Amino acid sequence: MGWIITIIVGGLIGWLASKIMSTDAQQGIIANILVGIVGAALGRWLFADVLGIGSAGAAGAFSLTGLLFGVLGAVVLIFLLKLVGVFK
């Protein structure tokens, strides 16, 4: 059951980040899920571990702060992917 929740929350995070970064037309559902899951992990690492923001440890969880930091991490990931030319 945990994997199903991870896929659903990852898809939601990836979709929101792709809307913010205007890459939704280039991404399908699989890319949204992958960007959401990897972006949430990146958000947890960047904001909680590196910057020391305590509530960022919930990144990727199905809560308001978890979704917020997950989307921020996914936005950073899409920005980096745009830099290397994966998205235009």
Rank of each mutant, 00 (worst) to 15 (best):
G66P: 00
G57C: 00
G60N: 10
V50T: 11
V75G: 09
G57A: 13
G85A: 07
G70M: 07
L68A: 15
D49W: 00
L77E: 10
A58C: 10
L67S: 01
G85S: 08
W45S: 00
A61H: 04
F62D: 09
L80G: 09
G54V: 10
F69V: 05
F62R: 00
K82Q: 14
L77A: 01
L46E: 09
A58M: 00
A61V: 06
W45D: 08
L80Q: 04
K82N: 05
L72H: 01
S55P: 01
A61N: 11
L77R: 02
I53W: 05
V75I: 14
A61I: 06
V76F: 15
G73V: 05
L72N: 09
V75C: 15
V75D: 05
L83T: 10
L77Y: 12
V71R: 03
G70S: 01
D49V: 08
G57L: 01
G54K: 13
L80I: 15
V71H: 02
V86S: 00
T65R: 05
A58N: 03
L46K: 02
V86G: 05
A58E: 12
W45P: 01
V84G: 02
L67G: 15
L72R: 00
S55W: 10
L83C: 14
A59P: 01
G52S: 10
L46F: 14
V71N: 05
G85H: 03
A56S: 06
F47P: 12
V71P: 00
A59Q: 07
L67H: 08
L67K: 03
S63D: 14
L81W: 08
V76M: 07
K82M: 13
F47L: 04
V50C: 01
A56Q: 11
L68H: 03
L51D: 06
F47K: 03
V76R: 00
F69A: 04
W45L: 12
G60S: 13
L72D: 02
F69S: 13
V76A: 15
L83H: 12
A59N: 10
L80R: 05
I53Q: 07
S63W: 05
I53M: 08
A48Q: 04
T65Y: 12
V50G: 04
V71A: 11
V50Q: 12
V76T: 14
V71I: 15
V84F: 11
A61L: 11
A48S: 14
G52R: 01
A61C: 07
A61T: 15
F69K: 07
L51M: 13
G57P: 08
S63H: 10
L64D: 10
G57V: 12
V84A: 10
G60Q: 05
D49Q: 04
G85K: 12
V75K: 03
S63L: 12
V50F: 07
V86Q: 07
V50Y: 13
V71K: 04
L72K: 04
I53A: 04
G60K: 02
L46N: 03
I53H: 03
V71E: 09
L67P: 07
G60C: 02
L81G: 06
A74T: 00
V86W: 00
G52T: 12
A48G: 01
A61F: 13
F47N: 11
V71D: 03
G85Q: 12
L83K: 15
K82T: 08
I78W: 00
G60T: 02
S55H: 02
F79A: 14
L68P: 07
A48T: 09
L67Y: 12
A48M: 03
L67R: 13
G57M: 03
G66I: 02
G60H: 09
G54L: 09
K82E: 14
G73D: 08
L51F: 15
